[in-house]
């Protein structure tokens, strides 16, 4: 198939229980037919060693000629230093912001992250927000954050998997600038419901493998099994995320 396939979120480096090297990621992308992947750094680098993380993701992007696209990270508790960090990451080629309120220890609605999102808005970066179970990172507060910044595209990482999949649809309806990601979500229950919802639809879903927490083959196999009209499949698998990142104006990596 010759549609552009973009993996909207993976994490490289050594995490607490899992790891993903750039080489292993590229091999998995080749194996599963993924053209480009947007990479965040390790858990420790998201939480506190932001400079090492931004160096890792932007270096991976440069080393692969842009096949990998860098997320920037900065712990919002660092205040002005977090903005300096994002500016540095931007200079190094980062093209999106990733936040994880569970790892970084803040509440999506406490205002700490707002200056970082404002930075993302100024640079036309999409913002990836990790979601899941209570207390801190549910789909609906993510939608509330998205509504504070209607000009910014937000990706709802994991779409509230699993027991807050039920909140993902109301979140997507509430904030039109919010996109669900497909990781872990069965198409024959969760994603199919989003697709059929007249206020959501497949144009609001982006493919993510969430490696190394999930498997490249398993996530892609479910996408291939999902019977969708070709243009909708192309949107979910890549063109929507490419549009959010501004990749479509570039030659393929």
């Amino acid at each position: 198939m010759n549609t552009l396939v973009v993996d909207a979120h993976v994490r490289i480096g050594q995490h607490r229980e899992a790891a993903l090297s750039v080489e292993a990621l590229l091999a998995a992308m080749d194996r599963t037919g993924v053209d480009r992947a947007v990479v965040a750094p390790s858990e420790a680098q998201i939480a506190y060693d932001n400079r090492a993380g931004n160096a890792a993701t932007t270096q991976a992007a440069r080393a692969t000629g842009g096949r990998l696209v860098a997320y920037a990270v900065a712990n919002p508790w660092r205040g002005a230093a977090a903005l300096d960090e994002l500016a540095w990451a931007h200079e190094q080629g980062a093209r999106a912001l990733a936040v994880d309120s569970a790892l970084q220890g803040f509440d999506l609605l406490d205002g700490l992250v707002d200056p970082l999102v404002r930075f993302a808005a100024e640079h036309r970066w999409p913002v990836y927000v990790r979601t899941g179970t209570p207390p801190g990172h549910l789909p609906l507060p993510t939608a509330a954050l998205a509504r504070r910044f209607p000009e910014v595209a937000f990706v709802m990482g994991r779409s509230g998997a699993t027991d807050f999949w039920i909140d993902a649809a109301p979140a997507l309806r509430h904030a039109p600038n919010l996109y669900g990601d497909t990781s872990y979500a069965p198409w024959d229950t969760v994603l199919g419901e989003f697709a059929r919802d007249p206020e959501i639809g497949t144009s609001r879903l982006v493919f993510s493998s969430d490696q190394p927490y999930a498997t490249a083959v398993g996530e892609m196999r479910r996408m291939r099994d999902w019977l969708l009209p070709a243009h909708e499949r192309a949107a979910v698998l890549g063109t929507t995320m490419a549009g959010l990142l501004g990749l479509e104006k570039e030659p393929p990596a």
């Binding site: 229950t189 498997t215 196999r221």
Partner: peptide
Amino acid sequence: GLSDKASQDYAVARVLEIDEW
């Protein structure tokens, strides 16, 4: 049992995915 299809496609996918763990 929760699938929209009697063939329980996501359950099949979960079994196949074990080989990737």
